[in-house]
């Protein structure tokens, strides 16, 4: 990331606002009139969006153009997401 690409303080604050809104939505989601499976999927989806916001904007992955860094950074996160989804979906939908 070049200094010119450095997001402003306001941008970081706006991302924080989204993260807090998602936190509130995720915390209150068990109260929604969905099935248990629906609530679990909704909560996982919110967690994934929050993780994406943190990694893209706070860890600056959005501004990294270097392919090896993306491979090193993103591949393990892809694996953990896949592992958790497979295990969770396996236990929820069995």
């Amino acid at each position: 990331m070049t200094p010119a690409q450095q997001p402003s303080y306001l941008k970081y604050f706006a991302i924080w606002g989204w993260l807090v809104a998602l936190l509130v939505a995720g915390t209150l989601s068990p109260l929604l009139p969905f099935s248990r499976r629906g609530v679990i999927l909704f909560i996982l989806l919110i967690a994934l969006v929050k993780a994406a916001l943190v990694s893209l904007f706070y860890m600056h992955l959005k501004f990294e153009k270097i392919v090896p860094l993306w491979v090193v950074a993103v591949f393990p996160f892809f694996l953990i997401t896949l592992a958790i989804l497979v295990l969770l979906l396996g236990s929820v939908f069995r």
């Binding site: 997001p7 970081y12 706070y58």
Partner: peptide, 16 residues
């Protein structure tokens, strides 16, 4: 969770 999310913002601002 709120505390950690907020700390991530302040850390990112520190880098800036």
């Amino acid at each position: 969770t709120f505390l950690l999310l907020t700390s991530s913002m302040t850390m990112a601002m520190g880098v800036a």
